[in-house]
Amino acid sequence: MIRYIIRRMLWVIPTVLVVSFLVYVAMDLTPGDPANAVLGDVATDEQYNQVREEMGLNDPIVVRYFRYVVNAVQGDLGTTLYGKRSVWDEVMSRLPYTIYLTLASIVVAVIFSLPLGILAGIRQNTWIDTLASVFSFVGMAIPNFWLGILLIMAFSVHLGWLPSMGVHGFKSIILPAITVGTGLTASLTRTVRAAMLDVIRQDYLRTARAKGLSNRVVILKHALKNAMIPIVTIIGTNMAGLLAGAMVTETVFSWPGIGYLTIKSVLGGDYNLVTGCIIITAVLMSLILLLIDVIYGFVDPRIKAQYVEGR
């Protein structure tokens, strides 16, 4: 198991290198010259060349990328175009907010989808099943940012219960988390229902019932435990979408996370910051996927056994 985790962790390194190289080269192709940005419009050719030389802009791209990576490992991603702050510090100060929002939206999704999906699964073709399928249908089609605005209209503008922007204590996370989590809630409800339908017909459940266990114990202990694998899978495969949804939602709620920062830096033309944001998000993403793979092992002993024997 540990060897598997290490192998899986090592695989993160080439992935991050490829992603960051692509991003770096792509950002290098963007119009706009950093030396010009430093000097402004009034500068002689001599000054211009000197600055380019100092900034290392005349080196081949592979050399510059290598330098970027060496610096990045030491926590230096260059400075922002405006205000000359450290890109690393800037991104890292936003990271906790994005992680907080993403985790909160997973919590929201699990809180809503587990009971709904379980009930829909064990009471197939009743009103609660219909409700669950209508809900997941609506949840999948509703655009994140529109839902966010509707929630703001209802709970901030009309009722005045919850703040519409920024971070002011626990109340602030509620609306953004619901906004980001709705899509995941929708697909999780479907998955939980399908998983329950699948598990409920298995022999071991009949055995559990035959042993005289109560319905509640059978559902919660035996059925749900075995339905966990598809649930974890869906959370895993939705992580990229969740982060993407968080980016847009952060803009709607002025939530100070990486998404909001990325979009502000894109609109402001701060390419150093954009590169930093994208690379850090990609690293974050690959770490989350690693985590999900490891969780698999713990959730399903059958998968764990595979790792232990096979490797």
């Binding site: 950002m27 993407a244 980016m247 998000t281 996927l289």
Partner: peptide, 16 residues
């Protein structure tokens, strides 16, 4: 490619 959130990738491409 699937590792980069699609919105982020689209934004990156549009920036370029």
């Amino acid at each position: 490619f699937t590792m980069i959130p699609s919105a982020l990738m689209a934004i990156g491409i549009i920036v370029i």
